[in-house]
Write a protein that binds this DNA or RNA. Structure first.
Lengths: 191, 191
DNA sequence: TACGGTGATGAGACCAAGTCCCATCACTTA
DNA sequence: TAAGTGATGGGACTTGGTCTCATCACCGTA
């Protein structure tokens, strides 16, 4: 077995997630992950840039969905409406299967510095992508940064909420962004 | 030479910065940095957790200054006023010497993924620290997150501006945060 | 049926990051 | 002068990650 079995990438992800759960991230060698998936270290690094990335596959797709939605939004829409559209656009990737191993994935990430680091970089990537797409629409630099940052905040809170409650991510994201905006209003109104 | 010369840590930082500038981060081995500083690899790792950290020394101090300022702020101050105090409190670390090699440091970080990753983690660290300190004051979760995130944004923009213009960082930070708040107002007012 | 092409994999050498352990040295204090 | 302390040197070792080349399954075509 092994060679030419289909879905090598998925097998690697599952093996990694299992092993990280059983022994912890640091105590699991890439060779071991590959072995459990019926593959070798070489093949692992053909599918993932590094050991961390096995937990973050497909996040580039998210950034593309976001920027696509921002570029395609109606011209008269305000920055935060556009950001909302960006979050909603990512909903197609939030499948039941993804929700199933979401908590395990989050737990592993939280347990390790390298992984929190990678997660932070991904979020910065989202923020930069949205900022650029907003600037492309003519939104001034600072407004674009702020709107994008608020969007990432809502995305993160929304993701955690979605893991707990399930349902349609688009709905959850919309509601969460609304609450963030309300918080912003309370902040500026208070002084 | 080497052994028992003072300021081993500072020598390592300077050697690293120079070598990264000359040959790039990836092409510079830790052993080489240590050698130029008149030390060995072992000693390098005694002073820095890893190769990246040589560029981020002292950022823990910043987080402590921020949380200290937030805890010590007057009880009636609003969240964003408190955040302003946090940024102002970090000004003591922004010396001329730090400004001197700031651009070189930023250029190196921008050139490499690992380093951008570490920088992102540091910023998340600031945000978490400020969020927690705000919650400690009774600020609700979401308001705290938003205020902290805006503070980090202002900190970053302010830092870049300070590298360009010089002067007192406290002043720059105050002004930058003011502009961020104005941008927030324009965002929410527009729709 | 045979053949060559293609793409994914295996295998192993290799380098550098990071850990560990122990010896060594300079300096301090009794 | 001797013991103690803290920073350093040195080297073995594991693992992440790169690179190169051989190998195998499948596909199309003659």
């Amino acid at each position: 077995m092994g060679r030419w079995e289909p879905d090598a990438r998925e097998r690697l992800v599952r093996a990694a997630l299992d092993l990280f759960g059983e022994q912890g991230y640091e105590n699991t060698a890439v060779a071991q992950i590959a072995e459990r998936a019926g593959l070798t270290k070489s093949t692992f690094f053909r599918h993932f840039r590094d050991k961390r990335e096995v937990l973050f596959g497909g996040q580039d797709v998210l950034a593309e969905l976001m920027t696509g939605a921002i570029s395609g939004a109606p011209a008269q829409a305000g920055p935060l409406e556009v950001v909302e559209a960006a979050l909603v656009a990512t909903a197609v990737t939030f499948t039941d299967e993804r929700r199933a191993h979401g908590p395990q994935r989050l737990a592993v990430i939280a347990s390790n510095d390298e992984l929190r680091e990678r997660a932070a970089l991904k979020m910065v990537g989202f923020a930069v992508a949205m900022t650029d797409a907003l600037k492309q629409r003519g939104v001034p630099e600072l407004e674009a940064s702020v709107a994008a940052e608020l969007g990432v905040l809502a995305f993160n809170h929304g993701y955690e909420r979605w893991l707990g409650t399930g349902g349609d991510f688009a709905e959850v994201a919309r509601r969460t962004l609304g609450e963030v905006r309300a918080a912003v209003g309370r902040l500026e109104g208070a002084e």
